[in-house]
Write a protein that binds this DNA or RNA. Sequence first.
RNA 1: GGAGAGAUGGCCGAGUGGUUUAAGGCGCACGCCUGGAAAGCGUGUUUACCUGAAAGGGUAACGAGGGUUCGAAUCCCUCUCUCUCCGCCA
Length: 382
Amino acid sequence: MLELPYLRENREEAVARLSKRNIDAAGLVAKALELDEQRRAIQNEADGKLAEMNELSRAIGELMKGGKKAEAEVAKTKTTELKGSIQLLKERLENAEKIQQDHLCTIPNAPNSKVPLGRTPEDNKVVMQDGIIPELGAAAKPHWELGEEYNLFSLDLGVKLTGAGFPVYSGQGAKLQRALIAFFLDKAVTTGYREVIPPHMVNAASAFATGQLPDKEGQMYHAVADDLYLIPTAEVPITNLYRDMILDDAQLPVKNVGYTPCFRREAGSYGKDVRGLNRVHQFDKVEIVRIEKPENSYAVLEEMVEHVKGLLQALELPYRQLLLCGGDMGFSSAMTYDMEVYAGAQKRWLEVSSISCFETFQSNRLKLRYRGEDKNRNCCTH
RNA sequence: GGAGAGAUGGCCGAGUGGUUUAAGGCGCACGCCUGGAAAGCGUGUUUACCUGAAAGGGUAACGAGGGUUCGAAUCCCUCUCUCUCCGCCA
């Protein structure tokens, strides 16, 4: 969620940035500010009436204590009308707040000025590429054939146990999976990240705070009996560790890493995108999450990219770095790099990592702030 | 699943209808004192929104949501969570 003070004070900039998403940026911002003005007007009126009421109640208390019952009764009759208008104003205020909130929730994050214009993945900018692209010839087998041949994993067994998209890893395949997880975790820990093992299910409040709800309701597995969601990424629980918190200066930066399985319904996916392990309902992922002061966030984004590059180089994989265009970015990101690895037999680039700066978009929703220089106001983290 | 107890500020903890403007303590910050420190003394110490150039002022919040009342941390209802005991159980 974008911050209202930001929209109020930097309207032009906000519109210009949001326009990169190919949406009606001016309209959305104008509406947000209009709703804000309405809300403030109502609150002003309501606060005034409440102050009057408080004053009256205090006076009645004094009269009662002074034994002036008759005068107190007279004062009481005066409150009736006031009470009615307060009731009404409270309802209007609640309504205005909800409408404003709902509207703000529909506005995506404002892309950074470096984000290229564009609508589709073809418009993404290749920042760099490294490693040797293998020339495998026509007989090269894709991973789903190799997996079967060497008993590394089975999608058919997963179908028996659960359904399509739930792979069963076995033997060397299981060992490779475990080794990769350990490798990524260890590398992160030696770089200074703290390892966490979070729950694999979260409540609705957590899913809302990181933006999965209401946006991606249908993409998460929902355990209805207990109203819990299977996490689509470790980002959800690890980021929610800091929900409703005010951090001290000294506590920043926060650097966490965690491995979890991830669950995604992937409704609407089809074709070659879902062959083999390209896109499955349950997969393993190691997530790194950083909470930073605003002035550091973009430098840290580059730092995180370097970390991931180091991993890909160590694994000797041919990879490239993309800067996503405005049309291809996620809802809550201000700038995203995707890291892709070249799959020789499939002859295509596959996303293996995605690194985003959210600016204050997530922390505003999480109510995650820190005590900064300005003592009058706690700031959202990046 | 059943029974009981509980949820108050950064922490402990008082508070059963009206100076609660949340006592008291701990912690923290600043000042005084000191050669320096400790102790002692004094002052301050939540968050969100509104208003204001600022100083300041207003409103709301005592687990959450409703209700009673001129007035609720306090009384009533519902829910959530924690603890203790019992039952059931991979």
